[in-house]
């Protein structure tokens, strides 16, 4: 614990705090949120900040604070799906490629190269074109786009370990590959996977929010930060900035926090991104 604190530094601990607040807010949204996030009243449109409405209300008279809290749920679950699916499949593909090597490795590499040829958002939009807009489709499609990044890093790390004596000798003793992989290779690449997931969480949040902004992710009237930036656009230009700005800032702060923590854990290289 102390080691972790040292690694994070002051800013890193603040970032962890931010993440904790957001996660708790999302978990306990039904308890904390004073209003229903989807129901507003026409008489309550564009209220300013007050005790009744902490951050005011939007153009439909819905409480912005409540919407932010509920919005944290979809804004967090989306990226969570992405990094979980990415980590599982990326690792699976990488370890399969490394263990079998040869033809399996080169075939899997080709498939990953093919996925690399698509910009992330394009791949997601193609999937949405086929299966229709929803958070699940967007998140799963984005996972597919992220898998090559994760697989590439895990593969190169596992490749280095593959020929070390502690892997080789049980292999010569005839212990099955899947056992060695699970017992020895996996624990060694695990920290890398966690760091990669932390960094990718931020990227996924931005890209999913972008899809929601384009009307291809979370669908109204549900509360979602990306969607709120979009639905508050007209109000913003008419001089009521609260909805868009607060939702946008929530994204910025959360992504920056995840980015900083990931950076402290080991950096972008672990996410398989050159940048």
């Amino acid at each position: 614990m102390k080691q972790f604190a040292e690694r994070m530094g002051t800013l890193g601990l603040i970032a962890c705090g931010v993440i904790a607040v957001v996660v708790l807010g999302a978990l306990f949204a039904p308890l904390i949120a004073p209003y229903d996030p989807t129901i507003g009243s026409v008489t309550q449109r564009y209220q300013g900040m007050s005790f009744e409405h902490l951050f005011g209300t939007d153009q439909a008279g819905r409480d912005i604070f409540s919407r932010l809290l509920w919005g944290a749920r979809s804004s967090l679950t989306g990226p969570l799906i992405v990094v979980a699916v990415t980590a599982v499949f990326g690792t699976l593909i990488a370890l399969t490629a490394v263990w079998w090597g040869g033809i399996v490795d080169s075939f899997l590499s080709r498939v990953l190269d093919l996925l690399f040829a698509f910009p992330n958002l394009l791949l997601a939009m193609l999937a949405i074109a086929v299966f229709g807009p929803s958070l699940t489709t967007a998140a799963l499609a984005l996972s597919v786009a992220y898998i090559p990044y994760s697989a590439r890093v895990v593969r190169s790390m596992a490749m280095r370990e593959r020929n070390l004596p502690y892997i080789r000798s049980p292999e010569l003793q005839g212990i099955p590959g899947i056992v060695i992989t699970a017992r020895h290779l996996l624990p060694n690449v695990a920290p890398l996977i966690v760091t990669g997931a932390t960094i990718n969480f931020g990227f996924a949040m931005i890209e999913l929010a972008a899809l929601s902004f384009l009307g291809l992710g979370v669908q109204p009237p549900a509360a979602d930060w990306g969607l709120m930036v979009s639905s508050g656009q007209q109000s913003l230009l008419n001089g009521y900035p609260a909805e868009s700005v607060l939702a946008g800032l929530s994204i910025v702060i959360t992504v920056a926090a995840f980015g900083y923590v990931g950076e402290r854990l080991g950096g972008r290289a672990a996410a398989g991104r050159k940048a």
Partner: peptide
Amino acid sequence: NLGFAVPTFF
């Protein structure tokens, strides 16, 4: 550190 976290649409 903050700039990279700003979504383009925002």
